[in-house]
């Protein structure tokens, strides 16, 4: 009952067929997708994360003395509207 108010995209017959083909291909290609994702993410992890990690460790050798307080300052909230429209 409640689902019925979720807007459904209006679809023509051609778009409908393409949508079904897309859906079918997704099912067929799913196992290949899992394997290829694993390979791609492994490469990304060892090249991207691994290399960054080496540089990170080289640059973080110093030990710091514990401060009196662990509170950190929060930068003031931005004033311009556009910065609130960004996901970062």
């Amino acid at each position: 009952m409640l689902n019925s108010v979720v807007p459904e995209p209006v679809e023509g017959p051609v778009r409908n067929i393409l949508h079904r083909i897309d859906k079918g291909l997704r099912i067929v290609l799913k196992p290949f997708q899992i394997v290829s994702n694993f390979i791609l993410f492994t490469v990304a992890y060892f090249l991207g994360v691994g290399l960054s990690s080496i540089f990170y460790r080289l640059g973080n050798k110093s030990k710091t003395i514990p401060p009196d307080s662990y509170w950190l300052d929060v930068p003031p909230a931005p004033k311009d509207r556009d910065s609130w429209l960004r996901p970062f």
């Binding site: 694993f38 993410f41 990304a44 992890y45 994360v49 691994g50 960054s52 990690s53 990170y56």
Partner: peptide, 18 residues
């Protein structure tokens, strides 16, 4: 986190990224 904990974070990276 992944950079700081390479290579121990491998499995979490694989699961989270997709």
């Amino acid at each position: 986190q992944h950079v700081q904990h390479f290579p121990r974070s491998f499995m979490v990276f694989q699961r989270a990224m997709p």
